[in-house]
Amino acid sequence: MRRLVIDVQPLEYAVARLDPDQAVPADLLTHPGQVLVSVTRTQREVSIICPAKFAPPGAKVEADWRLLSVRGPLAFTLTGIIAALASELAAAGVGLFTLSTFETDHVLVKSDDLTRAIDALQAAGHDVSM
């Protein structure tokens, strides 16, 4: 695997769930600044990844995540990025939640595992910056 540059984002993130018929709060995508917000609707749920302070009221929320973003853009032809990161973190006993966007890949790890995740990624040769 090639050396990746990974940026640790400063905020605490949450993964939230709404029922599939619930509306996504209109203001969720209007927050200024350098934050990631992702909304995915399936037949069974609406999943939202966002800074914890923006988690929708009434949603089932799993909070206390930290966001690590691979510095991109990454070509669509690249293979194995998430697999490599997942393998490196799994070897260190760090659970993760992944998300890919048009330009790059993101990994969320629990706040308590952040130091262990950074250490594992640096030991694998990646450049991790806070």
Rank of each mutant, 00 (worst) to 15 (best):
A90T: 14
R71G: 11
A52D: 05
I81T: 14
T98P: 06
D27K: 06
T115A: 12
A117M: 03
G33L: 07
D21F: 11
A55V: 03
Q9I: 00
S69P: 09
P32W: 08
V94K: 02
L28P: 09
K60R: 15
T30S: 14
D113H: 05
T98H: 04
A63H: 01
V128T: 04
F54Y: 15
M130Q: 10
D19H: 10
Q122N: 00
S129M: 10
K53R: 15
R2C: 01
R44Y: 08
D119G: 02
G93R: 05
G72F: 05
T42M: 07
A84F: 06
D21R: 15
E103N: 15
E88Y: 09
D105V: 12
L121P: 04
D127T: 07
A16Q: 01
L108A: 08
I49K: 01
T30P: 01
V61T: 14
R44K: 13
L96V: 14
L108Y: 02
K53V: 13
A124G: 00
F102P: 05
Q9M: 12
H126S: 09
A84S: 15
Q34V: 08
Q122P: 00
Q34G: 10
G125I: 07
S69E: 13
L67A: 00
P51N: 06
A16L: 02
S129V: 13
E103I: 10
A91N: 14
T104H: 11
Y13L: 02
V70W: 01
L4W: 03
D27E: 14
A124Q: 00
L74N: 08
T77Y: 09
F54K: 01
D7P: 00
P25G: 10
E103G: 07
S47Q: 12
L36C: 10
R44D: 15
P25I: 07
D105R: 05
L11S: 03
R2T: 11
D19N: 10
L121I: 04
G95S: 12
D21E: 15
V107Q: 05
A16R: 00
M1W: 08
